[in-house]
Amino acid sequence: MNDRTPECWNLLDDNAAAIARIFGQTIPRPLRELGSERARALANTEAPPEPITPLNQVDQLTMSTRAGAIAARLYRADGATGGDFAPAVVYLHGGGFVLGTLDGADELCRGIAAGSGWTVVSLEYRLAPENPYPAALHDCVDAFAWLIRNAPELGIDPDRIAIAGDSAGGNLAAALCLHRRDAGLPLPRTQILAYPAVDDTFTAPSWTEFADAPLLSAADARWCWEQYVGPNHPGGDQFAAPLRAASLRDLPPALIVTAEVDPLRDDAEAYAARLWRDDVPVILTRYPGVFHGFLSEVTLFPQAKHAIDEICLYLREFAQR
């Protein structure tokens, strides 16, 4: 970070501002200047040696897709909701389509499983730029279908599977819902999207207001998008940018979480508004004083704990419907 603190940083609470300064020292150059390999080395988070949230069952899975096998991780809490066949939520990690690992989402998935009683299945989809769009979406679509087929063997109710994700994972979760709706396939029971990347126009006010936000600047977010879709993508594709869909009708109910200081904030909130206008039940919560990526930093942000509690309550209530 340069000597001038961006004005938008004044909206951060003291804790988030301190964390932003630490991140700025850990990742001293913009992601777009580092490139994908160096950015992964600096920014990807490893799981702690001892988990903060212990669970009796954490299993490694391999799922079949059209491009081959992908890794996944299953988390099941004690006394899981639903008896022999529990509801499950498929979780798609963030990272701008370029970064992110199962380990980086490990504590978040543990917290959701422990707090909700739902089984959580976290996917290791392929990353860009080595695997550009639609590779990651194909992985998620195929893995979701695989989970439905194999659910009983895993102690999961195939009729009660939800989808969730943050950032790029939120994009993929929303796109998966659109894909299954348009294909006439059974939909996820609900969708949980944390600051999802849903538009490719980059014109909402937050792209300017929070251009110099911590961790993910507007320029870095656009660079990540370019790695994902490649240089010749025409834009306007609803499965790449779900906000561009002509209609959001008949999609699953949604919980959408946003961060106050985030270039993606207005796009995510516009997606919530579109869902509401198209008669899809939606809950939108903006968390003040924090920046993009806060949800997966469970040990750093009190707001992450509050958001996980909100997600868990939402899932517990949804399981009773």
Rank of each mutant, 00 (worst) to 15 (best):
171 N>S: 15
45 T>R: 15
157 D>N: 15
74 L>G: 05
55 L>Q: 00
267 D>M: 06
10 N>D: 12
191 Q>A: 08
261 V>H: 07
4 R>Y: 00
29 R>M: 12
51 P>Q: 02
290 V>M: 04
159 D>K: 15
108 L>I: 03
101 T>W: 14
19 I>G: 04
280 V>M: 01
186 P>H: 06
40 R>W: 05
88 A>L: 04
130 E>Y: 10
222 R>V: 10
164 A>V: 05
279 D>G: 01
259 A>P: 08
11 L>W: 02
90 V>M: 15
114 A>I: 01
217 S>G: 13
318 F>Y: 11
3 D>A: 12
35 G>L: 06
144 F>K: 06
223 W>E: 03
238 Q>Y: 09
313 L>S: 09
281 P>R: 06
186 P>W: 02
266 D>S: 08
84 D>L: 13
177 C>I: 05
162 A>F: 02
165 G>E: 04
105 A>I: 05
208 T>I: 04
11 L>P: 00
50 E>H: 15
102 L>G: 05
83 G>N: 05
151 A>W: 02
233 H>E: 07
8 C>A: 10
250 D>V: 03
310 E>Y: 02
228 Y>I: 04
284 L>S: 14
66 R>Y: 04
283 I>R: 11
165 G>H: 04
247 S>R: 11
279 D>S: 12
317 E>H: 12
99 L>Y: 07
236 G>T: 08
3 D>E: 11
165 G>D: 01
159 D>C: 13
269 E>L: 02
318 F>V: 00
313 L>K: 04
68 G>W: 06
149 R>N: 15
271 Y>T: 09
299 T>R: 15
192 I>C: 10
150 N>H: 15
134 P>N: 06
6 P>Y: 00
11 L>T: 05
268 A>D: 11
62 T>F: 12
313 L>E: 08
239 F>Y: 15
306 H>I: 12
286 R>S: 09
24 G>W: 02
82 G>F: 05
271 Y>F: 15
71 A>T: 13
272 A>I: 09
306 H>N: 14
247 S>E: 11
293 G>S: 06
297 E>V: 08
210 F>M: 01
143 A>L: 01
147 L>C: 13
267 D>A: 03
255 L>V: 02
188 P>A: 12
221 A>D: 08
31 L>R: 10
197 A>L: 13
172 L>C: 11
82 G>C: 05
173 A>S: 13
48 P>F: 09
301 F>W: 08
262 D>M: 05
146 W>E: 07
242 P>G: 06
246 A>Q: 13
289 G>V: 01
178 L>A: 07
22 I>K: 13
162 A>C: 07
166 D>K: 07
73 R>V: 01
314 Y>Q: 00
17 A>L: 14
164 A>H: 09
254 A>P: 10
15 N>G: 06
293 G>Y: 08
111 G>Q: 12
158 P>Q: 03
207 W>Y: 07
158 P>E: 03
40 R>D: 06
266 D>I: 02
121 V>D: 01
209 E>S: 11
112 I>V: 14
10 N>G: 09
278 D>V: 11
278 D>R: 11
63 M>F: 12
174 A>F: 04
274 R>N: 08
206 S>H: 08
107 E>V: 03
193 L>T: 09
225 W>F: 04
